[in-house]
Design a protein around this nucleic acid. Structure first.
Lengths: 366, 366
DNA sequence: CTGAAAGCGCTTACAG
DNA sequence: CTGAAAGCGCTTACAG
């Protein structure tokens, strides 16, 4: 068995077909009229030789990589939320003829921009034409991208610092609309709830914004916010299940009234539900529950959770679209985009007090 | 503000530093001794100009892309299982100086190899040096990769066709050890269970192998297998929660004995648990339950599920390692790898009959 | 419609 | 230790 070491190149195709390499290139890109007979001949040779063009040549000439980088920052694994964004981005980009390079990136918010140790993918030129930044984003990274003039699009909701979106973004961004947090609160209030708790680590910007909207909705109706917003341990970094369990244990132990809980995300809601289950407290008969994100947990809760659907794949698609526009616009700033977030009503909310008469009391284990 | 259109190139660095471009290249790759004074000078110019090397040039000369492609086949999103494999592979490869291009691929098992419409990433040469194939793999794709001589490594457990691993693989593969399915069955038998059901769509090779191991363990002890293995609807493609619900409803409706269930995966186990909860049947007091995969659902079940931990990130790492070896070995076949799968004992199993006396009876809603 | 040639930005023998 | 030059595999004016 002969070993094919050198790959077939354009020159060989040209020779075999009795044409110049320019013609082969034209056939490949159908960039200009080629006489039908020649076309056929060249195509046949390409097929016969199993020729696959080498992109490096084209890229060198074109000064473009036709690739885009998807960066997941400061995450310990590909979680379903960012997996959804990646998926949406990849589909949209590959439809537009761009490949997607995936990379994870772990960095400290305190490293000066110039000293950030970025992967080759970003530090070298030519691997990718542009970047989508997801995960948790800090100002130092954004500044470096700006300095290097790398066209980039941000997933905006997880940007840390920069004073809550008030500040101008160095790059264009895609946000999801979190004002639905207000609607979720209003929904509970509308059902007659007064003792509505919020649970979520307020250091994280996404929880903080939900908290602010919750507060606004409560105050608007003259209600006082009830909050469990203690920081999660830095080792645990548990902003979901475990946090929810802690939060609910705390609320119940506090002895303060509670007829409904707004969980900062669905994972927290699951933790809360678990505690309630163990104690024999029923959802929604005794306590109403809402979450945020509409990830898997929302459907696993019994009864299924009323929550807000963050359209992760759509965020990915919009990031892709914005980046493509930006690459065409050659760096001109483009308006950020906001994708709508839908309130998903399921069965975890009901008017308070149907069973226990307004204010729910801890009754111990069932 | 002046617009920097042309990027800084090696030639400019060389001129500014008063050296030849070869020296700049040597500095960049520290590929040869450079006089310290020259070295310093060149490095300073590089810094001052903000020079970032363009990889296309190097790649063209080196005939290598220093990138690897991660293909997720026939999946509708990045699920946690394959997200784990991707994560492990990406970490290992980026440590080895390779970037990872992620692509999804949807194809039919019935398309002839030559007619498969592959993304540019695979059909063109030079984008990546090698490929990791995950997701569900069919013979036609494998044959095409072989024909094109693309170095590739397979996630082996989801290979369809090719008669159950008996056939030689066209490429090297990484498997996880599913013999733990036998141990899970033995665990239940050891606790005294006799009426142990298996639930999982037997058309899927991963369920089929677990089923076979379950059967073997049952027969070894003279027990008859009890199986729910009906195909999931082709539109739904639900091999988890919904399948588990259907399975358990069926088992209970059948009136046949059941004291334990081996769920083909944790999602199925969750569905089963949900049905049991609704009916007021307790785990493990009334029915013992085991799953497979150790994904999130295993921890969400109350009590937590006894299952088998498939080390997805380790699979990713091994795929990366095998591919790197393969690239060095220039295509020589390498032994496949098998990563161990750990039985994770949690609280969902107990001896049968403590409560209801051996054979459990449907008692209707609580 | 088509070919010869220049050039994209690097690396690496080959001389010095 | 260092530079001039060839060449990696393409694309694209420029002539014909």
């Amino acid at each position: 068995m002969k070993r094919v070491e050198r790959h077939v190149t354009m020159k060989q195709v040209a020779r075999q077909a009795g044409v110049g390499i320019a013609t082969v290139s034209r056939v490949l890109n159908n960039s200009a009229r080629v006489e039908p007979a020649t076309l056929k001949r060249v195509q046949r040779v390409i097929r016969r030789l199993g020729y696959r063009p080498n992109v490096q040549g084209r890229r060198l000439v074109k000064q473009a990589a036709e690739m885009v980088c998807f960066v997941l920052s400061n995450r310990h694994f590909v979680n379903p939320f960012h997996g959804g964004i990646l998926w949406g981005a990849e589909r949209a980009l590959s439809n537009a003829g761009r490949d997607v390079v995936f990379t994870s990136l772990e960095y400290s918010p305190h490293t000066p921009p110039r000293q950030l140790a970025l992967p080759r993918i970003l530090s070298q030129r030519g691997i990718v034409d542009g970047v989508i930044l997801s995960g948790t984003l800090h100002q130092n990274l954004l500044r470096l991208m700006e300095e290097w003039r790398i066209p980039c699009v941000l997933f905006g909701n997880n940007i840390m610092g920069g004073s809550e979106r008030g500040r101008m973004r160095p790059c264009d961004a895609v946000y999801y609309d979190d004002s639905v947090a207000r609607q979720l609160t209003a929904l509970l209030i509308g059902l007659g709830h007064r003792a509505i708790w919020f649970a979520g680590d307020a250091r994280m910007p996404w929880f903080r914004r939900r908290l602010q909207l919750y507060r606004a909705a409560m105050r608007e109706r003259g209600l006082s916010p009830l909050e469990f917003t203690e920081p999660s341990g830095d080792q645990e970094r548990d902003y979901g299940l475990g946090y929810g369990e802690r939060a609910m244990e705390h609320v119940l132990a506090s002895g303060r009234p509670v007829t409904a809980v707004f969980a900062g995300n669905d994972g927290i809601a699951y933790g809360i539900w678990k505690v309630l289950q163990r104690r024999g407290i029923r959802v929604p008969d005794d306590i109403s529950l809402v979450g945020f994100d509409d990830v898997q947990e929302a459907r696993l809760i019994e009864p299924p959770l009323t929550t807000a659907r963050v359209p992760t794949e759509e965020i990915g698609r919009q990031c892709a679209g914005l980046l493509l526009s930006k690459l065409e616009a050659r760096g001109a700033p483009l308006p950020s985009r906001m994708v709508p977030t839908e309130l998903v009503q399921r069965a975890s909310c009901a008017p308070p007090g149907e069973v226990t008469g307004g204010r729910w009391q801890v009754t111990g284990r069932k």
